[in-house]
Design a protein around this nucleic acid. Structure first.
Lengths: 346, 346
DNA sequence: GTGAAAGCGCTAACAT
DNA sequence: ATGTTAGCGCTTTCAC
């Protein structure tokens, strides 16, 4: 096999002694080709290692079969797991995937990103940037002008917007209720950064679980972290000080919970006897913390898959009945996993 | 702003009263346009929200300005951090990025992946799949037939192949030497899966550091893990049994080292007094383990950046003098970070 | 079942 | 400085 200039459909046609259209039909597996002709063309394609040019095809068909994905914080494990789900499902459905990773969560270059994707003629966009502060406000300004299907991940419900998310509120409530049911009354909370939508939801779940059980949530029972182990350590120290009667703790992610476990080990605070702990996320390591961590397991791979499936559906629909598509809101329930960090020693 | 059918360059030309060519010149910022004409065209573009079609441009220019990225194991933190570096640098240099995540590390669909990228007419490929077993053997068969620039990450040096990697051997040697220098003699090793190239390199580094210090590495001093916390726990238990005189331990990644720290805490083995420990990777959490973990910090974001820079260079060169490009091999040195897990209490 | 003509939206090369 | 002509490689009519 020697290298040679790329073959075009025209040259294949020439060598096979047919017209370009016939070759095109063969490539696209159309039925209306004589069996013998098809074979002859296929042989030439094989022999000369011909590969159709997807760019030309896209131009002609006015459809690229590509999705655009916008993420942020790919250096963190959550976003990247979600992305792996997105990548796998995209592949599965036969689409290609363009990736754009935002340098910051809160960004002013939204229009550029969207423009770039429009320019590249993608068939749909997956917006997987966490909702922080007002970094979704652009939606209101743009969304009506964009005819392209877009699916949003992990966000508040909005009018005319399709979203797939994990039910953070539900998960937090599950975790907190579990701590209460196991007999604790003084339940603290280490939250994520409070300008994150997810943090707020988890906070609200904690708060409402307390209220529904006749416990009054107070300010000294909460400390704010920023998801990192480091911040978890600090927040725990703060709580130990502001809420000394604390006998249970709901931590907004597993990373920060790890710090709690380790600090407790240093301070000789027995977990779960003196302090019952639940995390949130369900990272694989949580099972091997000491003690193994009770947590809320969110299936981020599934989140990504479902989002892509929805997007693909929107793309298909968009092609048939234009304006009929209704926006959807899918909320996936995370699952409580009970481990030793919240089980009383017998 | 109301939606309307997408504008083409032709319609913009019409409205501006110029030819398509002039519009094209304006879009591409060519100098040879009268200032006034340029302004007129730009106004029309603005007013009608015109966006050039990159697909058409690619077809015409025979260049897409897209790279293809192949990864595997994106659900793990290492690959995804590397990828974030790749994404950022790609963006920086003005390229788009297609993402393909392999379902398995060891795969037989290599040809399909390459074909897909060729079909999409990418300008270059970044191969970021870890080298495991013989999953790089395909290179020998294909590489000479592919005229497309490809850069490989994290792999053994090969003829005619361009590669960027972290120097795992060097890092492992650094860590092990450090343990020896701090006065230990019985240095165990928990390795990664031994069919991984990276694991072998780290193992070799450990082995040679011992040898160079007059210590004879024996089989009972090594236990094999698979990078996970779970496997780390098991491997540590095994070593405790097979190598009871062990007073220091070089663990091939931080996740497994975490298990060691936690198990030690449970077993009341004091770290670093009884056992001095070093990890490898330098994940952010390692600083907040208890005790903080001595480790080898590899800058994966930089790894990704450098790879993309090299690829971009290959693309440029390829366009001028065809066959002159020599293959490169860049090896980035990781850095030893000394923390309490390997410092003797004073 | 197959082929000819036209077009997708853009740029390169040449002409003016 | 601007316009004209001819493609880029493929698909979509619409003939035959």
């Amino acid at each position: 096999m020697e290298k040679r200039a790329k073959l075009t459909i025209y040259e294949v046609a020439d060598k096979a002694g047919v017209s370009r259209q016939t070759v095109s039909r063969v490539i696209n597996n159309r039925p209306d080709v004589a069996d013998e002709t098809r074979k002859r063309v296929l042989r030439i394609i094989e022999e000369f290692d011909y590969r159709p040019n997807a760019v030309a095809r896209s131009l002609s068909m006015k459809r690229t079969n590509n999705f655009g994905l916008v993420t942020a914080g790919l250096e963190f494990i959550g976003p990247s797991v979600t992305m792996s789900g997105i990548a796998k499902e995209t592949e599965q459905l036969g689409y290609g995937l363009y990736l754009k990773d935002l340098p910051r969560f809160n960004t002013d270059i939204i229009q550029n990103i969207i423009d770039w994707f429009l320019t590249r003629q993608v068939d749909g966009i997956i917006w997987a940037v966490p909702e922080i502060g007002n970094n979704r406000d652009w939606i209101n300004n743009f969304i009506d002008n964009i005819r392209l299907p877009i699916i949003f991940l992990t966000a508040e419900k909005r009018k005319n917007i399709s979203t797939v998310t994990i039910d953070n509120y539900y998960g937090a409530k599950q975790a907190t209720s579990h701590l209460i049911e196991s007999g604790r009354k003084n339940i603290g909370h280490i939250s994520g950064p409070m300008d994150w939508w997810e943090s707020k939801q988890r906070y609200n779940g904690w708060r409402d679980a307390l209220k529904e059980n006749g416990i009054n949530p107070k300010e000294n029972m909460v400390a704010e972290g920023n998801w990192s182990s480091k911040s978890g350590k600090k927040a725990f120290a703060q709580l130990l000080d502001s809420f000394p009667e604390m006998d249970a703790l709901f931590v907004a992610n597993d990373q920060m919970a790890l710090s709690v476990l380790q600090t407790a080990c240093e301070l000789k605070i027995n977990i779960p006897d003196q302090l019952s702990v639940s995390g949130f996320d369900g990272i694989p390591e949580s099972e091997f913390f000491s003690p193994p961590l009770t947590t809320i397991c969110q299936n981020l791979v599934e989140l990504g898959s479902v989002a892509v499936q929805q997007l693909a559906q929107m793309v298909e629909m968009n092609n048939s009945d234009k304006e009929s598509r209704e926006s959807i809101y899918i909320s996936l329930k995370p699952e409580l996993i009970i481990r030793q960090s919240s089980i009383l020693n017998l």
